[in-house]
Amino acid sequence: MTAFKKSFNIKKRDFVRAGEASINVQNILKSLNMDHKLIRRIAICGYESEMNVVMHGGDGILTVEINTGKIILDIEDNGDGIENIELAMQKGYSTATEEHREMGFGAGMGLPNMKANSDILSVESEKGKGTQVHMEFNVSAD
């Protein structure tokens, strides 16, 4: 069986509409009667990565792939890129600007939160060229 796949655009600096892609993904998962806790984890990861794109990433695409046993989120952008991924994975490390902080973002919890809520997380990035985030979530059989 092939998987269901759908992509959503994320726009640079669009704080008002940030989160829409995650809400869409969430609604699709809800219609499939997935486990609430799993949906919540995916929604949190989706939202965090969407915020990262909006804040640092430039324009990006969020793609959800739904398989029977696994759900995959891929987020790609053409923005700033991450200079030191290891550092970015640390709790509280943030490169948010003053403006971001004034809006209540930039606590440095984005990637750590995504790591905590996904089963597999991989981040590839090159400074100045963009970032690719890949996350997997296992769906239990029941």
Binding site: I28, S31, L32, N67
Partner: peptide, 12 residues
């Protein structure tokens, strides 16, 4: 009502 992944694909 809940739908299956197959139905989701058909809808799309």
């Amino acid at each position: 009502e809940h739908i299956s992944i197959e139905q989701l694909k058909d809808i799309e």
